[in-house]
Amino acid sequence: MIPWLSWLAAICGAAGLIGALGLAPPDYQQGEGYRIIFVHVPAAVLSTVAYAVMATAAGVGLIWRMNVAHAVAASCASIGAWFTALALVTGSLWGRPMWGTYWEWDPRLTSELVLLFLYLGYMGLRSAIDDTARADRASAVLALVGVINLPIIHYSVDWWNSLHQGHTLLKFGKASMPPSMLTPLLLMMLAFLLYFGAIVLTRARGAVLRRERQARWIGEIVGVTAP
């Protein structure tokens, strides 16, 4: 499954990149500068999707006491944090020429920053508790409480009079973009999400190996034969 996700991500990414940097026309207001959207939006989408997956897995782990779910949740955190930081930095590099500032305490930007702190808090909490079962429970509660931030991020551009532009894709009617821009953007988003799947599965595999290393079936898989 991991090779499939990886190859699909690479193909979508390559096609998206050709569209993003080559075929898509310049924006009528922002010129070539808008091309940052093709990495900024997928990174931001990934940052929130990763959190949704993490919180769902944490919730499943908490309710049904599934170790695998906790392993998946823990695997989402670091990649989510990296892409949240990426969304913030690329947004900042986009904000400088278009808004005249790298940073503004705008609701969208602030809530995305809070998302980064949630990820870092989640990882910090996990690493601070030695007992895996306790770390699972405590971090799952934190992940679930943090879910409140997701709708805030999403609707911040509607709820407040924000510097950040409004929704481009998810709104009633149709997306406010011509197909020549929309197609590469959707391809890039798909590529990022497939990539996320591949990375999380790789990490979750490692996490399960660590957790269950006492189990007999792990020994059989990795080639340590029990006497």
């Binding site: 990649i79 990375i199 790789t202 990490r203 595999r205 490692g206 996490a207 190996l209 660590r210 290393r213 006492q214 189990a215 007999r216 792990i218 020994g219 990795v222 080639g223 340590v224 029990a226 006497p227």
Partner: peptide
């Protein structure tokens, strides 16, 4: 991610299992 998985695999190989040894 790959390094993390390789580490996990190495440590799983290094420790023959307690349960496995009992049985």
């Amino acid at each position: 991610a790959r390094r993390d998985f390789a580490d996990a695999l190495r440590s799983a190989r290094r420790r023959p299992t307690a349960k496995g040894n009992e049985q």
